[in-house]
Design a protein around this nucleic acid. Sequence first.
DNA 1: GACGAACTACGACGGATGTAGTAGCTTGTT
DNA 2: AACAAGCTACTACATCCGTCGTAGTTCGTC
Lengths: 138, 138
Amino acid sequence: MPPRQTELSDAELEVLKALWDLGPTSVREVMNHLHAQGRELAYTTVLTFLTRLKAKKYVTSKKSGQAYIYKAKVSREKVTGSRLSSLIEQLFDGASAPLVLHLVQSNKLSSDELGELRRLLNDLDDRDDQAPGVGEGR
Amino acid sequence: MPPRQTELSDAELEVLKALWDLGPTSVREVMNHLHAQGRELAYTTVLTFLTRLKAKKYVTSKKSGQAYIYKAKVSREKVTGSRLSSLIEQLFDGASAPLVLHLVQSNKLSSDELGELRRLLNDLDDRDDQAPGVGEGR
DNA sequence: GACGAACTACGACGGATGTAGTAGCTTGTT
DNA sequence: AACAAGCTACTACATCCGTCGTAGTTCGTC
């Protein structure tokens, strides 16, 4: 039997995000953090998610006194990148460009952000030295 | 009781995408299209998804002879936009900018695509003439 | 040393999802 | 008219997901 299911569910992600925000901490602290954001979950529910996150290897835990301290094992960037890739795969068959254009056109960026983007593009332009492994992901 | 569940599941989306690709068509054609992409689903499975899509109002159908012809009722853009918003909400608390920057930096865009993006930015620039101070976004 | 508070382990439960089988209706072809 | 092929409706079922409740353990306090 291969490990049951290793993907992050939405609710699990919420809990993981709390862990990223807080750093290594206890079930109770995570719960408090969620409550502070208006997410009312029972203590045992949070515990369940943390347990599942541990089973799926997204967090580790070590006992400290009576309780466990949970710690994120994967970075926010990693998870973010991977979720994003899935979405791009799903919606645009793997091509990032349509997504970027869509976002830029959607008028959701402030002038500052547009400026930042322009700057970034110029930088890229300069060092356009054929990065290896363009890895055509398809 | 509000209608059970109105969200698109992943598998349902795959089927809906086939409908977008093909235009109004039959279960069998949808199935063939999916098979052509290496997605081997039983005829009745495809039928199930189309039925669920109909229940969730993402498609309509009308009988044509013995079989039904299914037709997408929501546009690709609409669904794409909404899925994207959810992701942005989930991962970046609603801010699009970090996502755009992330994508541009990830080196997944071709020179052509970067060019296109630059062009788009220039257009936007023209029509949005604002000299913003150091306005802090969020 | 018994009590209550806090913690964890485990089980549970209804609804969603992915996937498909079966049965029965329809229709073109012998 | 009887059949085979194709179509839909309905049912099924394992797993996942979101959400907790309960029970048992541990530890600090009267």
